[in-house]
Amino acid sequence: MATEAELKALMAASLDGDAASYRTLLDRLSRRLRAYYKGRLARVGRSATEAEDLVQEVLFAVHLKRHTYDTRELFTPWVHTIARYKLIDYLRRTRSAASVPIDEGAEVMAQDDNADAESSHDVRKLLGRLPEKMRCAIECVKLEGRSVAEAAVRCGISESGVKINIHRGLQSLAAFIAREDQK
């Protein structure tokens, strides 16, 4: 189990732009969040797929709100507060939604706690709903791993435009996901 000090060091490196640390951090967080949400949702009779939806919502939130973490503070309370905020918000949003049919129960319970865990969202389909510039910027930089300069040429916008479009695009994706959960 990762400790506060480890996670905090990873977060500090991530904020400096260290992609490898950031990847490790998000990976560890997703495991912890999965366990947290499975436990919480089981108590209110919800399924494990929903837990994965929430894990991904929080990963988006951590990413989009990472500038609100102050490195002089503890990291675990920061994540935990976001996780709890998103859980309460999720339960409120999905209150009227039907719960999982009973015959699916066995299948849902059979899902392993592994890292292959999948949510109900299709990121490719969601990307298609974004405006062209946002989609292009995210595909180039975040999916194909090209530099911001390359993306600027390919998408026909400035480098700062690429960064803004990535940020806005990820914000929109997170909003799409939240809206899909409502259904």
Binding site: Y22, D116, I138, V141, L143
Partner: peptide, 13 residues
């Protein structure tokens, strides 16, 4: 969407 893929996407660049 796999959570691993999301982690990869968010942490790239």
């Amino acid at each position: 969407m796999k959570t691993d893929d999301l982690v990869l996407m968010l942490s790239t660049n």
